[in-house]
């Protein structure tokens, strides 16, 4: 056990301490390097910069949008896949497949082959109905990103919710039916409460991963057109404009934010460990 713990400890502590250190300094490698200790100034500047609040909004929209899509459609899809049908295994695989596509590929495929305003599939469809093709990534950039990222994460939600569905004791449903509950009531009073734990877990895990979404933005818009999330903003501060102090302060914010979400997740997982 010791080596694993030790490695992780080093892996976590060293960069973390460095980030904290940088966040307290005016450190710009391209403009003379370390310009000294500035206290909490970076933290204040990071939140007061004109790109901060838009980035927060973008982050909230994307994370919230993807969560909404993947939970709602995930529940519906899980219910659908739980029904008796022919070729269930194959359909399941079809639905899960997007999760295995590497983020850069899915972003690129969507961007070019579907959302391209002249040759994309969507443009063809729009024209077939006599409408003007939408210039997706410029006109509705956030919606486009939600679409791409949801496509990647919907399978994850579906799979977990399906697993949860399948663990629902069918006798419970039958008992409810005997008690006079109609299908809608059975869904809301039996199935949904049973799913609530799985849904919570999907929300927490996806939130953590979605807050860190990077490749999709990097490949599609490069942060332009108001698609700069907090993660992307920090990335730009650190590597593109090489304002390490400022970016590190942003990094500290991101770590705190992720830890708040993680705390909830750990409580659920921890309870599960006791059994």
């Amino acid at each position: 056990m010791a080596p694993a713990v030790f490695l992780l400890l080093v892996w976590m502590l060293v960069p973390l301490c460095m980030t904290l250190w940088f966040s307290l300094r005016d450190y710009r490698p391209l403009r003379g390097g370390d310009l000294g200790f500035v206290g909490l100034e970076n933290f204040a500047r990071f939140v007061s910069s004109s790109s901060f609040w838009p980035a927060v909004l973008t982050t909230v929209l994307i994370v919230g949008g993807v969560l909404l899509v993947s939970i709602i459609f995930g529940v519906l899809l899980a219910m659908l896949l739980d029904q008796p049908m022919w070729g269930q295994g194959i359909v399941r695989i079809l639905v899960i497949a997007p999760f295995f596509v590497m983020p850069t590929v899915s972003a690129l495929v969507w961007k070019n082959m579907f959302m391209d305003p002249t040759n994309g599939v969507f443009a063809h469809i729009w024209r077939a109905f006599g409408a003007d093709p939408v210039v997706w990534l410029t006109d509705v950039p956030i919606l486009s990103l939600i679409l791409i990222i949801s496509w990647q994460w919907l399978p994850f939600a579906t799979l977990i919710l399906l697993t949860a569905f399948q663990s629902l004791d069918s006798e419970q449903l039958e008992a409810a039916e005997m008690d006079g509950a109609n299908p809608l009531a059975r869904f809301f009073f039996i199935a949904l409460p049973h799913l609530s734990r799985a849904i919570t877990i999907v929300i927490l895990i996806q939130t953590i991963f979605l807050l860190a979404v990077f490749a999709e933005i990097f490949v599609t818009t490069g942060g332009a057109f108001g698609t700069r999330t907090l993660t992307y903003l920090i990335y730009q501060r650190v590597l593109e404009s090489q304002n390490v102090g400022l970016g590190s302060a942003g990094g500290v914010y991101a770590i705190i934010l992720a830890n708040i979400v993680a705390l909830f997740l750990m409580r659920i997982v921890g309870k599960n460990l006791d059994r």
Partner: peptide, 24 residues
């Protein structure tokens, strides 16, 4: 149990937060 949960928490660390230190 604590160690397992702690390990999990390291997985939650946002990569961008430690991007520069690792890069450096």
């Amino acid at each position: 149990k604590d160690i397992l949960l702690w390990m999990l928490s390291t997985k939650m660390l946002p990569a961008v937060g430690v991007l520069y230190p690792i890069y450096l």
